[in-house]
């Protein structure tokens, strides 16, 4: 089993973060309950989960891009920018300190490359802007960098394409342009929010290859958000599985895929189709029930209402993380009990 080198300083450490959405005429909704994540240079952490489980919200919280109605009542987002650490959770979203991190130290690529780029500005303009903003170079120098970047992300005829508008490019090219924009100031951390979901499968594979190769070149840490386990296997070093605002299991990607410990992770793995001969095919086993709204989430483990192994403590008590392997954690009472019994 490959050991994660402990010597590497984490770039970003999220500790015990929760996110609450307030509304003037409804009770507060806790979208994310308790997230601990650590990101290291050169490594990719994949955050997996169904739609609405809080993975995008978690990612946006790192850049403080959430609406005013979102609060971070507890936890820390410790970002190591080289000259010490800063707690992003305590910065004001529109403060200079936060803005100088955005796009320069931590940048983000989004799911919809069409709507995430401004339709009325050329992609060159949109990339130049970040470089001029953070590095204060002349627009002409910035354009040189832009062309080089577009070249690096595999856009042929970069100089002409820089003058193209997003609607003149294909989905794959747009996403490449988006990646070039995110990497313009060589960030320490790249957050990729489902960057391949809107693309077709061949383009998806190209973009994943590109991201992996750029990670080798730039050495940045990457937080990769997806709901696609195939993509996780393709790109991630570590994986964190989220369900309804909780990270239920996290660890090395091989470890988690080989022996998933949390009932939710196990159920997820069973719902992935495999290529088989017709005679050997089995029906997929979907997870029974539907995801409850965060308002109806049990006080204990969020998976209680759908878990096949549910027993007494599940509904009432939040399970603490149990270490089930080196750096492999899962939050499940079942595991805690087995471990207790093993020790007893």
């Amino acid at each position: 089993m490959p050991q994660i080198p402990m010597a590497a300083e984490p770039i970003l450490a999220i500790k015990n973060m929760s996110i609450t959405f307030t509304s003037p005429d409804e009770a507060d909704v806790e979208a994310v309950r308790q997230v601990d994540l650590t990101l290291t240079a050169g490594k990719t952490l994949a955050l997996v989960g169904e739609s609405g489980c809080g993975k995008s919200v978690t990612a946006r919280a790192i850049l403080r891009l959430l609406d005013k109605s979102a609060l971070l009542p507890s936890g820390e987002i410790l970002f190591n920018h080289g000259q010490g650490t800063v707690d992003i959770a305590r910065l004001k979203p529109d403060s200079l300190a936060m803005r100088s991190i955005r796009g320069a130290e931590i940048s983000m690529i989004f799911q919809e490359p069409m709507t995430s780029l401004s339709p009325v500005h050329t992609i060159g303009d949109q990339i130049d802007e970040v470089i001029v903003l953070h590095e204060g170079v002349s627009p002409k120098k910035a354009r040189e960098r832009t062309v080089h970047l577009l070249d690096q992300v595999g856009i042929s005829g970069a100089r002409e394409r820089a003058n193209a508008y997003p609607f003149e490019l294909s989905g794959g090219l747009r996403q490449r342009a988006m990646i070039a924009m995110a990497l313009a100031c060589t960030p320490k951390l790249l957050i990729a929010d489902e960057p391949t979901t809107a693309l077709d499968v061949t383009t998806q594979a190209q973009i994943l290859d590109l991201l992996r190769q750029l990670q080798d070149d730039f050495g940045m840490a990457m937080l990769f958000i997806t709901h696609d386990l195939g993509v996780v296997a393709e790109i991630a070093d570590e994986v964190a599985v989220m369900y309804l605002g909780d990270v239920v299991e996290q660890g090395d990607v091989y470890e988690v895929f080989r022996s998933p410990q949390h009932p939710y992770t196990q159920a997820l793995m069973n719902s992935v189709p495999h290529l088989r001969r017709k005679a050997d095919r089995q029906r997929l086993s979907p997870i029974k029930g539907t995801v409850p709204s965060p308002k109806d989430r049990p006080a204990g483990c969020a998976f209680t209402s759908r878990c096949p192994y549910v027993f007494e403590p599940c509904a009432g008590t939040r399970p603490a993380p149990t270490e089930v392997g080196a750096g492999h954690l899962a939050r499940c009472h079942l595991l805690a009990r087995t471990k207790m019994e093993a020790l007893a």
């Binding site: 946006r60 850049l63 320069a104 983000m108 919809e112 780029l117 401004s118 802007e129 970040v130």
Partner: peptide, 23 residues
């Protein structure tokens, strides 16, 4: 979403608003 992208670049809020959605 392109407004979020503009914010994620680190632009000040007024510049984000005037350059992108207002346009």
């Amino acid at each position: 979403p392109y407004v979020v992208t503009a914010r994620a670049k680190g632009l000040p809020e007024w510049k984000v608003i005037l350059k992108y959605p207002v346009r």
